[in-house]
């Protein structure tokens, strides 16, 4: 999932300073799962913002809405009946959702309420960790299902480096050395030989280095 974390309320309040009536829009997808911008978080932030405003002697009218998916125009369209009453939109979706709302409602200021962080997985309840950087040319088949791009601090394709100690990365004892994990996994699979294969230099054009990316499925595209 795409993970996110709520911005400091002070920053959000600064964005909203000129407005007395806003539309606070959550998303039922990734940000719900990572407890950053689903229905519950929308209600909590709404309550916090209204109280913060009342404390300064003003009021803030908040209409709360949580869309099925904020990154799809079909769902963003559901805002159309409510957008005019709001001075601005505050979105709790990832950056994709914020931009989709901004694209659809060109004359309405749209502000992010969360910082979009990374593509990750739940390690346990309440803990999410980075797992994929969307490099566009997946290596997991060579590395025992553990990504050296997302999980090695240096993105080494042939690791580990000298900073690996007791299975941990030199940047922090909390961070596993991805290449230690890869080695252990290959060993468990009986694929130690694969470790000897040198992975050649990566063509980063499939990643962000090739500029903004797009997928077109001819059979589906209208």
């Amino acid at each position: 999932m795409i993970t996110a974390e709520r911005k400091p309320i002070e920053e959000i309040l600064e964005y909203l300073e000129p407005y007395d009536r806003i539309l606070l829009v959550g998303c039922n997808e990734c940000v719900t799962v990572c407890a950053a911008g689903g229905r519950k978080e929308v209600a909590l932030l709404s309550s916090a913002l209204q109280m913060a405003r009342m404390k300064s002697g003003r009021t803030l009218e908040v209409r709360e809405m949580t869309l099925e998916r904020q990154c799809d125009p079909e769902y963003v369209e559901e805002l159309v009946n409510f957008i005019d009453q709001a001075g601005a939109v505050l979105s709790m979706a990832c950056g994709c959702g914020v931009q989709e709302v901004a694209r659809r409602f060109k004359d309405k200021p749209v502000f992010p309420a969360v910082n979009t962080k990374f593509m990750g997985a739940s390690e346990r309840q309440g803990v999410w960790a980075e797992r994929c950087q969307g490099c566009g040319d997946c290596l997991l088949g060579l590395t025992g299902g553990i990504c050296p791009i997302a999980r090695c601090s240096k993105r080494l394709l042939n690791g580990p480096c000298g900073g690996s100690t007791d299975g941990k990365c030199e940047i922090s004892p909390e961070v596993d050395c991805a290449w230690q994990l890869i080695w252990e996994r290959l060993k468990a699979l009986g694929l130690e030989k694969r470790y000897e294969d040198i992975i050649s230099a990566k063509d980063w054009r499939t990643s962000r280095d090739g500029g903004p990316r797009k997928i077109v499925r001819e059979d589906l595209a209208s």
Binding site: P8, I9, E10, L44, A48, L49, M51, A52, K55
Partner: peptide, 8 residues
Amino acid sequence: KMLDEIGI
């Protein structure tokens, strides 16, 4: 934490 953040 949230109440501290909003000054309540």
